[in-house]
Design a protein around this nucleic acid. Structure first.
Length: 200
DNA sequence: ATAAAGATCATT
DNA sequence: ATGATCTTTATG
């Protein structure tokens, strides 16, 4: 088992890190149960210059403070009053960039994930979408600030890599308010994966 | 103190 | 298309 190390996260290029996260395995260990799956969809948030990012314009509040941590930290926040969205902080401390994990292909302990989602059998929407995958993995807002090198939440490299040709780039979801930045093609999906949220 | 909006999802 | 649901943020 090989966890991604600090140098993977602290690079000065969120977009590149977003692409490379495809094929990595996001794992959690809560309630004595290890659950997880392969990341198949991500979005990059470029920080102070990106209107779609919470940290746009260096906005620094209690919530966004986590984005200013060193790369390799979990940034979890509540969206629309009901969904916990999980991000991976990238770059060095004080440069607030992050990658939103939007979908995974469930692999580890599917039984437990089904229970958490209150689903009877495996369907392709088990972990498709940023709000549903956190439910399946047991991630909540109080995990914000958790480092990804411990025993609770981490990302593994199992030597699966996707080439540029296998990655589909498109506009990010739900950021229409961001003006010009809404058009940036910073949503990345594994082509032909059954487990991403729906195409557009 | 108040109000508005939001990196969503399941259902109709 | 719409409703559920509540924190964060900006403004007065």
């Amino acid at each position: 088992m090989q966890k991604l190390d600090l140098s993977f996260y602290t690079r000065n290029d969120v977009v590149q890190v977003s692409k490379e996260l495809l094929g990595k395995f996001l794992m959690t260990n809560f309630d004595g149960k290890i659950t997880g799956g392969m990341i198949v969809e991500t979005e990059a948030y470029a920080g102070i210059t990106d209107k779609a990012s919470h940290s746009y314009g260096n906005r620094r509040t209690k919530r966004t403070e986590t984005m200013f941590c060193e790369g390799g930290t979990a940034y979890v926040y509540l969206c629309y009053g009901m969904y916990n969205l999980f991000n991976v902080v990238t770059n060095v401390a004080e440069i607030p960039q992050a990658v939103l994990i939007r979908a995974i292909e469930p692999t580890e302990n599917i039984e437990t994930m089904l229970q958490r989602r209150k689903m009877a059998k495996l369907q392709r929407n088990l972990t498709a979408g940023p709000g549903t995958l956190t439910l399946a993995l047991g991630i909540r807002t109080d995990h914000t600030g958790t480092r990804l090198f411990g025993e609770k939440i981490w990302i593994e490299d199992r030597k699966i890599n996707f080439s540029e040709a296998e990655i589909l780039a498109s506009e990010r979801v739900g950021v229409a308010y961001a003006g010009e930045d809404a058009k940036r093609p910073w949503r990345f999906r594994v082509k032909n994966s059954l487990w991403t949220s729906l195409a557009k």
